[in-house]
Amino acid sequence: MKNPMIQVKNLIYDYLISKNEDEEPERHRAIDDVTLTVETGDFIAILGHNGSGKSTFAKQINVLLKPTSGTLIVGGMDTADEKNLLPIRQTAGMVFQNPDNQIIATIVEEDVGFGPENIGVPTDEIWKRVEKSLSSVGMLHYRKHSPNRLSGGQKQRVAIAGVMAMKPDCIVLDEPTAMLDPAGRKDVIATVRELNEKENVTVILITHYMDEVVFADKVFVMDAGRIALQGTPREVFSQVEKLKEIGLDVPQVTELAHELKEEGLPLPDGILTPEEFREEIEKLWQSSAEMSPTSILKEADLKSRLSIRSI
């Protein structure tokens, strides 16, 4: 039995806001009693609106912040222990939102080499790692380029390569696509999925784009510092009303399917992609053509048959 990648137990994080120097600083709870486990090799998505605590949580994993109370174990190491700092940061690498503000060097390959340099990897090994990680994100061709001339999506892929070069077991991505256009978003997500599948890297993707989490193994929805929902994407997206209440969207076809179901059409819960939607409607259409001549909208028997088949 392998150890879980990340174990979080009753994590609480308060930050202090002091408006006046004389006043007692105000406590603001960003993470409120979160407990969760991330298994090695999983693709995890954390959803939540701005200010829900999801970014604060990401920074905890990388020990950019430390818990006010509770424990956070990354790869078997407690983040509260000072001596684990560098090993944890190497185990769980992090990619940030703004592609411009996380590239240190003026040449792509030198930037990718920055992490390994910091952890004291021998020179020959750095070159090997740089080459390997750049090719794993499909940016090897750009190794001698200046990052300033790359597109947003390409910059993010360089940033991911920079993390991969430290040979992490886990990558935390804090809204990596928020500032990208749709083409860049697709590239970055495809890259991350490939790393997860081929290199077996545990991925923790923080986002508010619903279509990016459809492929995740597990989704956590954060609201006001707590975990409001969790489960497979299908389980989470079945709860359209609850998600809307929190201020989040669901993919458009999921919402359409949900509304049709409310009107009595026997569709399964949690349809996630246009393909699934089309298939379900097609099935329904064919069976309505074959069906005994009664309105399928009232056909309870069919309803149960369909929902069994689709799960």
């Binding site: 940061r89 940030f96 030198e110 080499g113 340099e117 910091n118 004291g120 020179t123």
Partner: peptide, 19 residues
């Protein structure tokens, strides 16, 4: 923050990609 996340901790124990 990005530098810290990539284990930057000053010049100590640092190796060079292009020595």
């Amino acid at each position: 923050m990005a530098m810290e996340a990539r284990c930057y901790h000053g010049g100590e124990g640092r190796t060079k990609m292009k020595p």
